[in-house]
């Protein structure tokens, strides 16, 4: 467990999360070692199933980087993502997984530091939680 580097799937809305990741890189803010970015046109594209599948297929945690509320280019995509996340949380609880494994972070294009910080915080948190016991 010493060298456990949590695997994080980070869904990035193309309107905010993805540019923020670019900015974080541009500012040379380090990302934790094991992050996989998934670029989606809007957080509303992220299905509840993707959140579960990510964990099922081996991720230790999932992050959704979506636009601030009331700031969605497509009006309600970020809110749909949030509702789907709350549904996934209910399932996680039943499965017996910590709901901290999936989290949403609202940000804007200029929030590179926030994105990097969230990734690090999540990575540390997942290190404490340990590897995802439900992965197949």
């Amino acid at each position: 467990m010493v060298n456990f580097e949590p695997k994080i799937v980070a869904f990035c809305c193309d309107q905010s999360g993805y540019p923020a990741a670019d900015m974080a890189g541009g500012l040379e803010l380090n990302f934790p070692g094991n992050v996989e970015f998934v670029r989606v046109p809007c957080a509303g594209r992220i299905e509840t199933l993707y959140l579960l599948k990510a964990l099922e297929r081996g991720a230790d945690g999932v992050l959704i980087f979506a636009c601030y509320e009331e700031n969605c280019q497509f009006l309600r995509g970020n809110l749909r993502a949030k509702s789907r996340l709350s549904y996934a949380h209910r399932l996680l609880e039943k499965i017996g997984l910590e709901k901290e494994r999936i989290e949403i972070c609202h940000l804007a294009t200029n929030c590179g530091p926030k994105l990097a910080e969230t990734l690090h915080r999540k990575s540390e948190q997942l290190k404490k939680l340990g590897p995802n016991p439900a992965k197949i």
């Binding site: 989606v40 509303g44 594209r45 299905e47 789907r84």
Partner: peptide
């Protein structure tokens, strides 16, 4: 506009986003 909100929501998984 290709945002994919409907795709994520369809209970029959009848909708696909063609480019993603």
């Amino acid at each position: 506009y290709g945002c994919g909100i409907c795709v994520g929501e369809c209970p029959a998984k009848a909708i696909t986003l063609r480019h993603q």
